[in-house]
């Protein structure tokens, strides 16, 4: 069989048949990378909501120790907001399906993975701060938080709260990351692996 001649016939008989149904240039993409981009945008939206919440609390809270922790949380969230914004812009810039596919996929995959890994690691330090801020706000609702914190019983309760909340939040965040970003990242990863498999087989 002549491969080229058969291909030409195949093109003529079958491949050039139009796709049926109404086709329009949709403004919304269902592409997995576009979904990743959307997820980053949602994360940014949540960061803004949390920032507003912290700012509101900063205004209504009167005790300096609580204000201090709220300021720390605002700074941390601002940092992550700009980090996510930077990564989002990076992904938007590198996601180009009219360029070399392997490079595009690797850039999007590596950018997303490194950001998520950084956020995962840094969250270990942030959860205790967030737990302390919440704990202090609870104390401040009833009494003088700074005074209460001098009692060893209160300090032990705070340590226990941190010890329980930090790993719980860490694993919850990991699970959420897997549910939201995971399937799209896995899809990209398996494609990159296909490229690498072909390169290995050809060597």
């Amino acid at each position: 069989m002549d491969l080229q001649k058969t291909w030409n016939r195949l093109e003529h008989d079958k491949l050039n048949k139009p796709v049926l149904g109404i086709i329009s240039v949709s403004k919304k993409s269902k592409h997995p990378v576009q979904k990743l981009i959307d997820l980053f945008k949602i994360t940014l939206g949540f960061s803004v909501v949390f920032e507003m919440g912290f700012i509101y609390l900063l205004i209504i809270m009167t005790q300096p120790i609580v204000k201090l922790f709220l300021v720390i949380m605002i700074i941390v969230y601002l940092f992550f907001f700009f980090l996510n914004l930077k990564i989002l812009k990076n992904i938007q810039r590198t996601f180009r399906l009219d360029l070399n596919l392997k490079t595009t996929l690797k850039q999007v995959y590596d950018n997303t993975q490194s950001t998520l890994a950084f956020q995962r690691k840094s969250s270990i330090f942030i959860y205790p701060l967030a737990a302390t801020a919440g704990f202090l706000m609870g104390l401040a609702a009833e009494k003088d938080a700074a005074l209460m914190m001098q009692k060893w019983q209160v300090q032990i309760i705070l340590v226990i709260a941190i010890a329980v909340l930090t790993p719980s939040c860490y694993y919850l965040a990991r699970w959420m990351e897997k549910v939201s970003y995971g399937k799209y990242l896995n899809q990209l990863h398996s494609l990159i692996e296909d490229f690498e498999r072909i390169e290995k087989q050809s060597n």
Partner: peptide, 11 residues
């Protein structure tokens, strides 16, 4: 087919 046609046109 339709989804992909639209996605290719979009991209």
């Amino acid at each position: 087919e339709r989804d992909l046609m639209q996605e290719i046109l979009f991209q």
